[in-house]
C-alpha cells in the first residue's frame, strides 16, 4: 500500500484471514505439557469473557416474574422506536457511504491511480480522530452561520449520518478496494465496453455483482457500529439513537437496561455471524472495531 499503512490501526481489516486454518501438527511430544497451560489460560479467558454476559443475564432476570424486564422493554414504544431509528440511520449511512466510496474506489483504480495515496489517507483519518473530536468539530462548524444544521431535527439527523459515513470510510473503502483488486476491474470494464455497454450498465451489471461479498460485509459492519454508537449521537442530541436510549434507560431503570444490553450484544453477534457467513470461502475477512 502506497501510504504505508499496513492495516487500519483501529480496524485490523484482514486480520481474520487464515483463522480457521489449523496449523499442521508436528507430532511434538512437548505438546502435552504446553496444552495443559493452554487449557488453563483458555478457561480463565473464557471465564472473563462470559462473566459479564452471565451477570447481565442474571441481573435482567432478577425481578419477579423473571421475564418482567423483557416484557417491560418490549412494551416500551421507545425501544422499538430507537431500534427502528438506528436501523434507518444505519441503512442511510450505508447507502450514502457506498454511493461515495464505490465510484471513488473504482475511479481511483481505473483512471487516477496517482490519487490513490491521498484517497487512502483520507479514508484512514477517522482512525486518528476520536469520535468525540469529530463531533466536536462538526457541531462547531454546523451550528452557526452560514450552515445552521443543528437547529432542525432533519439537519441534526443529516449531521449524524455524515459523521457515521466518515466513520464507515476506513473499512468501506478497504472492503470495496480489496473487492476491486480481486476482480481486475480494468479488464472487466474494457470487456464490457467492447461489447457496447455504457457506464451505468458497467457498474450495475458487471462491477456490483462481483463485489457482492465485499459490499455486504462492509454494510453489515456499518450497521453493527451505527446501531450501538453513543458519543456522536448524544452530542447531536439524537435521543432516539439506540445507544443513547440505552444510556438514558440505564440512568432511570434498574433491570430493563440489563435486558436491552443483552439484546444489544445479541445484535452484535448477529451482525458478526452474517458477516462470517457472507465472507465464508473468501480469503479476506474484514474486521473492525466500533464505538468505544
Amino acid at each position: 500500500m502506497s501510504t504505508g499503512w499496513s492495516g487500519p490501526p483501529f480496524g485490523p481489516i484482514g486480520v481474520m484471514r487464515s483463522w480457521l486454518k489449523p496449523r499442521p501438527g508436528s507430532g511434538d511430544r512437548k505438546r502435552r505439557r504446553s496444552s495443559l497451560v493452554a487449557w488453563v489460560i483458555l478457561i480463565l479467558g473464557v471465564f472473563y469473557f462470559l462473566l459479564p454476559l452471565v451477570a447481565t443475564l442474571e441481573f435482567s432476570l432478577r425481578p419477579k416474574p423473571t421475564t418482567l424486564a423483557y416484557t417491560n422493554v418490549l412494551a416500551d414504544p421507545k425501544f422499538g422506536g430507537s431500534l427502528l431509528y438506528s436501523f434507518t440511520i444505519g441503512i442511510i449511512t450505508i447507502i450514502v457511504s457506498l454511493s461515495i466510496i464505490l465510484p471513488t474506489a473504482f475511479w481511483v483504480r481505473l483512471k487516477v491511480p496517482r490519487l490513490r495515496p491521498v484517497v487512502e489517507f483520507v479514508t484512514l483519518v477517522p482512525f486518528i480522530i476520536p469520535a468525540v473530536i469529530l463531533v466536536f468539530g462538526i457541531i462547531r462548524v454546523y451550528s452557526r452561520k452560514p450552515f445552521v444544521f443543528t437547529a432542525t431535527e432533519f439537519g441534526s439527523d443529516a449531521l449524524l449520518v455524515a459523521a457515521y459515513v466518515v466513520l464507515s470510510f476506513p473499512y468501506m473503502y478497504r472492503a470495496v478496494d480489496t473487492g476491486l483488486a480481486s476482480i481486475d476491474v480494468r479488464s472487466l470494464t474494457e470487456a464490457a465496453q467492447s461489447l457496447g455497454a455504457g457506464w451505468t450498465r458497467i457498474i450495475l451489471r458487471v462491477i456490483l455483482p462481483n463485489l457482492r461479498t465485499a459490499l455486504l460485509s462492509g454494510a453489515f459492519l456499518t450497521l453493527a457500529i451505527v446501531i450501538g454508537e453513543y458519543t456522536i449521537a448524544s452530542f447531536l442530541a439524537r435521543n432516539d439513537q439506540f445507544g443513547v436510549y440505552l444510556s438514558l434507560l440505564g440512568q432511570n431503570k434498574a433491570f430493563e437496561p440489563a435486558a436491552v444490553s443483552l439484546i444489544s450484544f445479541g445484535l452484535t453477534w448477529l451482525a458478526m455471524i452474517v458477516i462470517a457467513l457472507i465472507g465464508r470461502g473468501t480469503r479476506d475477512r474484514i474486521q473492525i472495531t466500533g464505538a468505544r
Partner: peptide, 24 residues
C-alpha cells in the same frame, strides 16, 4: 470459536459494555 467470539467482544463496547460490568 475464540476468534469469532473475539470479533464480537472487540465490538461490544460503549454503553452496553459499561452496563454489563455494572451488573457484574
Amino acid at each position: 470459536a475464540v476468534m469469532t467470539f473475539s470479533g464480537v467482544a472487540s465490538n461490544f463496547a460503549g454503553v452496553p459494555l459499561a452496563l454489563a460490568f455494572v451488573f457484574t
